[in-house]
Design a protein around this nucleic acid. Sequence first.
DNA 1: CGAATCGTTGAGGTCGCTCAATCATAGTGG
DNA 2: CCACTATGATTGAGCGACCTCAACGATTCG
Lengths: 254, 254
Amino acid sequence: MAYQFASVARTTSSEAAGSQPIDPFLTRLLSNGTLTREQVRIVTAMQSPPRSVPARTQLARAGGSATSTYVIREGWAFAYSLLAGGERQVVGFLLPGDIIPFECSGHGSAELGVETVTDMIVSEVTSAAVRAAAQQWPEVFVLFLRHQSEMMLGLIGHLTDLGRRDARARIAQLLLKLERRLAPVGLTEFDGYDCPISQYLIADALGLTAIHVNRVLRGLREQGIVTVRSNRVTIHDRARLMAIAGEDDGDDVG
Amino acid sequence: MAYQFASVARTTSSEAAGSQPIDPFLTRLLSNGTLTREQVRIVTAMQSPPRSVPARTQLARAGGSATSTYVIREGWAFAYSLLAGGERQVVGFLLPGDIIPFECSGHGSAELGVETVTDMIVSEVTSAAVRAAAQQWPEVFVLFLRHQSEMMLGLIGHLTDLGRRDARARIAQLLLKLERRLAPVGLTEFDGYDCPISQYLIADALGLTAIHVNRVLRGLREQGIVTVRSNRVTIHDRARLMAIAGEDDGDDVG
DNA sequence: CGAATCGTTGAGGTCGCTCAATCATAGTGG
DNA sequence: CCACTATGATTGAGCGACCTCAACGATTCG
């Protein structure tokens, strides 16, 4: 197995034995705390039985039908677009609870795709199941719309990083944003999180070279700010990391 | 008046006198040719009477309510995000037929907004009107979803430009993409189009400096490829422009 | 124990930025 | 009609962040 996803052990150990395991999709859709037993039942029923997908697998390619989509229960993936010259731009990382974007044909000069990073466990959600759920509880449409809006905000943030921040700030942003997305599904600890993405992937996500990513990470490590090594991100000095990311947390900086 | 939007004259002249003027929103939503008289009526009825907005006006700021949105009938605007340091990243340009994105609170480290470039004419579309239209014709939801998907694809393309193309390619891409979006609403001519955005705006959209944009544009002009000057884009050599943009139009390049 | 992937390091080049002006255009009020 | 102002376009000199090319080390896996 290419990469043993360490969160499995942690997730089970953080629950009482025998209790129902966390459903990251549920957590994601219903991020406000109040949810009825009925809503839990409906959202759970939308998903077909979990299926596992090996690491480094193409999940979505242009030309497929869009009659169903997948929800990530466990594991990491990424969406990318591919230029004619072979350059790859990682558009976003897909984490537990995320919906894998529908297959969409390319938009002219770039080809889109989704590829798994680690072994993954996904549930299929057919459009038929969504329609059925919407009949019982019309607001599921709103939930999906909100999810899509979140993705658009994520894209806008990513875009802004590429356009207007330097390499250090981009990397700091990425590390903080990943932590913020992993937290609600219980995949973080107080000082960091498991992170299976290589420096090549980071480079392709941030419009940089793996070589330059490496140098910047070395700098951040030597300054005691953050260590990114062997599938693990350890944050030593969160305040300085946020400052580098351009997120001044309310304190005066002058 | 700050900028006389030349499309008005052209639009009316391209139609029989006295015929109903083009509705860019309709054109945009129903990009497939087949639409019934009933559908036209419904989509038209969704929009409240047109309202005009002066150039250089803030349209959407964080904190507003999202009970209604606007549809552009005439004029240009842009959506941007603003970093703490004052840097601005233009996220996208908004053209006739586009829906101005809902007001959304910032996503952490950046503030979002929409600002008009030229004088604009917009129609309000309340969520109540959308609901009413959806009762008569349920597929309007699908149309809106498709519109949102188009916007996401646009963001992904923009993101890829910033991450993996150099300045020349980014500018060529932008010029071609604007033309492609203006064509369906009848705002292009055979060799170019009116384009009211300054080099500063281009720079903020493409993650560059206005100074560098100027130099690249000079190069493109001196090579007889494209002229961008005084609110007008004139394409002299479309094939070479597409080649620079990284869109090899099927011909071998080796 | 080879193969594959990932991480690390050095030397040198360049694309695009910064700083600092100057020119062009259009609107504005006297 | 003409200063006056604001915005946008243009140009030059110099620099630095990031890239390219070219290795070599580390780790994992079959």
